[in-house]
Nucleic acid binder design. Structure first.
Lengths: 188, 188
DNA sequence: TAGCGTTGTCAACAACCGTTGGCAAACAGG
DNA sequence: CCTGTTTGCCAACGGTTGTTGACAACGCTA
């Protein structure tokens, strides 16, 4: 029936099932509450399989929290539209991919996850923001301010679930947030 | 030597020591990693004392996470200074009181802590913001936006510890954040 | 001084955690 | 068909956690 493409091992399906269950659990419960036993139960396999394929709980998290922001090339965005483009991109990127929520939840209690969050920020966001200015230190600060607003939005919307923030739709949020990001990136 | 004021029990000192240690641990480690045993060791008493005085770990957290924003009366702040006053107030309130950090960390993994965070927002911030406008629903949204920026700043500065955000001093941060809050509160 | 509530310690409990090693079944190649 | 590897399950380990109950020292009051 489902013939396997050549070069794929039979265990790849199991690996993928584990990863999917892990992302769900980490996103819903955070690092310490998400137990290997529960993840394994969701993936319908034995907990020892998780250990064989990912080595340890930390290794599993590292694999599950691989996150690509998929930022557009900011060098090609018209300068006055930077805020709007970024605001809409983040909203779209989050809704429907719980990896960011998993990383966000875990980062508050797990030092390794916080380190990875800093890495995502530096390697992806700050690197892209650096393109649109000259002074590297100043652009790093601007990127940090963008992160503060954008992560704050994710935190209040997906983690704490503040009613007024949950109640607004994507367009409303973009309309409010975009000018903030625009000023952080190109203002003053 | 240290004579006790009338009406205070001898155990009040122990209760206070437990609470202080609990706040430190919850702030540093989050809800699940902060163990009762570690908190008791910090307070130099037996873990069973914690149970006797606070009933359970959840009860202890509830007592330790009592948080008063101590917001000024926004009705008496000049309208064009709202952003600056609020930005500076939050910065001052957080540096030196780790209760907010404890609440923030715990809120990402503990449902009860998230509920309490929503309560602090609704009862203190939203209630105060409601004074400066007429339409209650609109003001609730504005208060939510303020929370998204302000909690995002706390999250990136105290939890994730993003280098550019950690590296800026209070004055710089206020200069950047105040206009954002001003627009969320009174803009458009 | 006798009695009683308070403050504190100690030892143990049941449950759960991440992790390990052994063993059976399924598979692949000769 | 035989043989070695892969995939999976099972049972158990050592450790940690929140929580409990028994019991000893202390302090107040009569």
């Amino acid at each position: 029936m489902t013939d396997t493409a050549p070069g794929t091992r039979r265990s790849d399906a199991t690996r993928a099932a584990i990863l999917r269950a892990a992302r769900e659990r980490f996103a819903a419960d955070g690092y310490e509450r998400a137990t290997i036993r529960a993840i394994a139960a969701d993936a319908r396999i034995d907990p020892s399989m998780v250990m064989r394929y990912y080595g340890s709980k930390e290794g599993l998290f590292a694999a599950a929290a691989e996150f690509d922001l998929r930022l557009p090339d900011l060098g090609e965005v018209p300068r006055e539209q930077l805020g709007e483009v970024l605001a809409r991109h983040f909203l779209n990127r989050w809704e429907g991919d719980e990896t960011l929520v998993a990383l966000l939840r875990a980062a508050s209690t797990n030092p390794g996850a916080a380190e990875r969050m800093r890495g995502v920020f530096a390697d992806q966001l700050a690197a892209e923001v650096a393109k649109i200015g000259t002074d590297p230190a100043a652009m790093a600060r601007r990127a940090g301010l963008v992160a503060s607003q954008v992560l704050g939005l994710a935190f209040t919307r997906y983690i704490v679930r503040l009613p007024p923030i949950v109640g607004m739709d994507a367009d409303e949020l973009v309309a409010w947030i975009a000018p903030t990001l625009q000023r952080y990136l190109a203002g003053r």
